[in-house]
Design a protein around this nucleic acid. Structure first.
Lengths: 213, 213
DNA sequence: GTCTATACAATGATAGAC
DNA sequence: GTCTATCATTGTATAGAC
């Protein structure tokens, strides 16, 4: 029967258009609020085509999410190959993430609203995997920074929470207010978190920041 | 006709049970994935009762959200009456928020997934109001801290983003992993943000800090 | 592989009795 | 105010022709 495809490569056909349509609609309306009819219309095919390539609406859902996990690995993989201090590497990773989000914006928005949305609004899936993977990578970066003496010895897990929280929240903001993505914001906030909100007159580790008042 | 009620007080009747049922189900499954049949079953009434008190499913939705805005004002009002330094007050506010979230947990979860979920998964509503209100309050607290010389002069809006991001992310974590709420976490992370991730050996915010390297 | 046509269940909403 | 019974619509999914 050969209904199995590589899911990524070169048959710019009905299957890929269905995946793309699904991502766009789930990002905008969520799983439950998106009728199959719209998915297929948007992909320029008819309903039976969907049920030919995927078992059902839920199968389509899983196909998209597994694809997302692959992309996350690509992004983090590049980030891990970056040299520099802990702050450098965290900023570079953040940059990579933003580039990935810009390229696959709706995919990210879909994942994000699934992770933080109502638990039963969509079929079961281990959404925590994205989060855990991020935590592992970031806490690893920070831990190395401690060993090299670049940063103070805060609990790496807590530090990772703070950093991931910033990235996450920044992306959320861009999403909620539907502004253009502000690729600078998470970097600014992360620097702020490294420098500290409370300490007056702190020279930055990387940049010399002008101060006044 | 007199179908207008105060929405809050003492008729522990069908209307209130409907609101509570709605909150619980929307928090768990979201707007689109929650059938009115379940709402009324869970409230122990029948469908026409719902349509008697509220215009339709969407009217019920709005009623719940307006109620949430009132509660937000209560919580922030208490927080604003707290004395102390900027850090003290931010921590106190965070504490108040957590108390509120514990008391009205599902209401918060519902709001949150609506704010950060897919835009068209539910009827239109100005969800940004909750966020803007938080930003105003927090940036105000920080600004006062600057004027009193308690904190360094970071951009109050950016500082508010960082702080709100922490609160938000903490609540998200508790939600996503369905752990018990950890009321300590946001406080820890906020202190961490005030102290700074990057600065080794940081004395508290009041004193001037020496640097090295 | 892709279509037309349709089966079948679930949903939001209401009419009308009490 | 609350119920029983019902309607119109929309949803997912499939049969069967090509």
């Amino acid at each position: 029967m050969e209904t199995r495809q590589p899911l990524s490569t070169a048959d710019m056909g009905a299957r890929e258009r269905l995946l793309e349509s699904t991502v766009n609609l789930f990002a905008e309306k969520g799983y439950a609020a998106t009728p199959v009819r719209e998915i297929v219309e948007n992909a320029g095919v008819t309903k039976p085509v969907l049920y030919y390539y995927f078992k059902n609406k839920e199968g389509l859902f899983h196909a998209v999410l597994d694809w997302a996990a692959e992309l996350q690995e690509e992004v983090l993989g590049e980030a891990l190959n970056t040299p520099g201090t802990a702050l450098d590497r965290v900023l570079a990773m953040t940059q990579q993430i933003y580039l990935g989000v810009i390229e696959y914006r709706n995919l990210f928005r879909m994942i994000h609203s699934l992770v933080f949305g109502p638990p039963q609004a969509a079929p079961d899936y281990d959404f925590g995997r994205y989060h855990r993977r991020m935590m592992d990578v970031i806490s690893g970066l920070y831990r190395e920074g401690i060993e090299k003496g670049e940063v103070r010895g805060a609990n790496p897990k807590e530090a990772a929470l703070l950093i991931l929280g910033i990235i996450d929240f920044s992306l959320n903001l861009d999403h909620v207010y539907e502004q253009k993505l502000d690729p600078e914001r998470p970097q600014r906030l992360i620097r702020l978190a490294f420098e500290g909100l409370g300490n007056r007159h702190v020279p930055s580790m990387e940049t010399a920041i002008p101060r006044q008042s």
